[in-house]
């Protein structure tokens, strides 16, 4: 490659272009993402119920986390307890946090199990499966369908009004006497969201895990099968342990995705009536600020900041893993060069 003097000349004369090429990205990112992020921090210290806000300190956090017994620190009611309004906000917030966790766990576990099994089958050279590429395309299909349209479809199919197609069919067949509340029932609506989310994402996870398994050195499987290891043994002794970094990455990114779950929980409802059993943090945030006349910027922003902290902790893991991958590649390249 170029010697040191060549490098110096290049860095002197062309560095300017480096800045020019990355400038648009950073200008737009700072205006449309970084400023809004700081604005969110600022709004989390502001009052609720109006577009004209005033400073209230950490009251919003107290309302969300402590509720009724928290003490108001600013404004006309300074020194008083948060009272009924805060209690309602706190119980809402705790409910949506709980919902988010339940819905994420409930869709992640079936998704990872199905995907692992499928990925192991697809990558196993001892199995003869024809048409793998077609299967992959079909499995990924639900992921690209507009979530708003999927939600509408599932509501229309599973609605408990007299028009819900599934309930109608079950009743016509005499299997049930009354419609099952797939959309408004507590357990039913949650299970439906879990199934829909699994349906949407298992193809994606399968393909990602497959590329992970294909990264494992093939001679390991070779040696194992020569030594008489069965498929199941190979899966538990070779595939799973070596897949751990990718699994961990999948879990972390899926958790970040789970924290922001919005479309399905927001749109899966009968008419305009709201299903509170599946309301997630993202829906809570959206409903509080999305009001042109009296937005609750404070509660919404405080919840966002907490979501940000959670995401940052999870993101730090993913970040470290991405960097490791990069550095490993660097090391390998350097070694190759030396050789």
């Amino acid at each position: 490659m170029a010697n040191t003097s060549g490098k110096r000349v290049r860095s002197i004369s062309y560095a300017k272009y480096g800045y020019l090429f990355i400038l648009p990205f950073f200008v737009v990112y700072i205006v449309f993402q970084i400023y809004p992020l700081f604005n969110t921090f600022y709004l989390s210290t502001q009052s609720n119920g109006s577009t004209q806000t005033e400073f209230v300190g950490l009251d919003n956090y107290e309302a969300l986390l402590v509720g009724e017994t928290g003490t108001i620190s600013h404004g006309d009611n300074a020194g008083n307890k948060g009272g009924r309004a805060w209690r309602a906000v706190k119980s809402d917030f705790m409910r949506v946090m709980g919902n988010t966790i339940i819905l994420w766990v409930g869709n992640f576990i079936p998704q990872i199990v199905i995907s692992l099994v499928l990925a192991a089958w697809f990558t196993n050279s001892l199995l003869k499966i024809k048409g793998k590429s077609v299967y992959k395309i079909l499995m990924y299909l639900p992921n690209i369908i507009t979530a708003a349209s999927s939600a509408a479809l599932f509501v229309m199919l599973f609605s408990e009004t007299q028009f819900g197609a599934i309930n109608k069919m079950l009743m016509n067949m005499g299997m049930i006497a009354d419609p099952i509340p797939f959309v408004t029932g507590k357990a039913q609506s949650r299970v439906m969201i879990m199934i829909i989310q699994t349906w949407m994402w298992y193809g994606n996870t399968t393909i990602m895990l497959m590329s992970g398994i294909m990264g494992i050195n093939g001679s390991l499987f070779e040696a194992a099968s020569i030594d008489g290891a069965t498929m199941t043994q190979q899966f538990f002794r070779i595939t799973l342990p070596l897949l751990r970094p990718i699994m961990l990455y999948t879990v972390v990114t899926s958790m970040i995705g789970g924290l922001q779950m919005f479309d399905m929980p927001y749109l899966y409802k009968n008419g305009t009536s709201f299903t509170k059993h599946i309301e997630t943090v993202a829906v809570f945030i959206y409903n509080h600020f999305h009001n042109a006349v009296s937005p609750n910027y404070g509660y919404s922003a405080a919840a966002s900041v907490m979501l940000f902290i959670l995401t940052a902790i999870l993101g730090a893991f993913a970040f470290a893993m991405n960097r490791d991958k990069d550095q490993k590649m660097h090391k390998r390249k350097k070694q190759n060069k030396l050789l």
Binding site: Y29, F32, L37, I285, A301, G315
Partner: peptide, 18 residues
């Protein structure tokens, strides 16, 4: 790399108000 994982939901209050 660091900001890659920040979800839009986190900044949307500030974004919308802005």
């Amino acid at each position: 790399l660091a900001v890659m994982m920040i979800p839009v939901q986190v900044t949307s209050v500030g974004f919308y108000q802005f």
